[in-house]
Amino acid sequence: MITRPSPRRQGFVWVVLAAAALVVSAGARESRASEAKGDLNLQLRLIETVPVRGSSGPSMTGLARIELLVDAFRQAREVQVAVERPDGTSWTFNGRPFNLRPDDWTDPGGEPLEPDGSGPVVPARGAIRTTIQVPLNGAMVHEIVVRVTALIGDETVTTEAYLTAALGVAPNLPVDDGTFATFSLQEVK
C-alpha cells in the first residue's frame, strides 16, 4: 500500500526542505577563513601563576606555568626554547639567568615524541607540546616573551609569543558586567 503524507505533513516537509536549502546556501556563502601562519609558529597558554609559599608583598616571588604548542609548515628539528623580556633581554631571576628545563615534549595528544638525537622534532604540518616554568620576582604583571628556534632544512627559524602573568596584583583587564567591559581612565599626574 502506498501512503501519501497529508497536506499538512507535506507542508512541514517543504518547510524543512526550505530550511535545509537555506542552511546549505548560507554555508556556501561563507566559510571560516583563518589567519595565515609562518613557517614556525608558537602558541602560549598560561596554566597558572603560583606564588612561592611564604612570600608576600611587593617582593613576593612565584612561578608561571606556561604551555607551549609549536607547529611548523615543514619539519622543524632541534627545537630550542628561551624566555626573554619584551625588550629582548634574557629572563633572569634575582638578577641571574635561570636554567629553563622544559618538560618532555609530546605530540598534541600528549603522547611522547619518538626519540631523536638532535632534540625535539616538529613534523611537517604538525605540532608538539611542552610546559615550562618561569620564575617570577615581584608583585606585578610580568611580561614574558617565549622564543622558539628550530632548524627547517638548513635554515634557522625563530618565532616568539608574548603573554602576561599577574603575580600578587590584578591583571590589566576590564570590569565586565556582562553588557559592558569597562576600562577606567587614569589621570595623568
Binding site: 576590564p174 565586565d176 558586567d177 556582562g178 553588557t179 559592558f180 567591559a181 569597562t182 576600562f183 577606567s184 581612565l185
Partner: peptide, 11 residues
Amino acid sequence: TPGGSIYAVSP
C-alpha cells in the same frame, strides 16, 4: 569581548 560585552572606557 568573546562573551559579547561592548568595550567602554570611563574617566
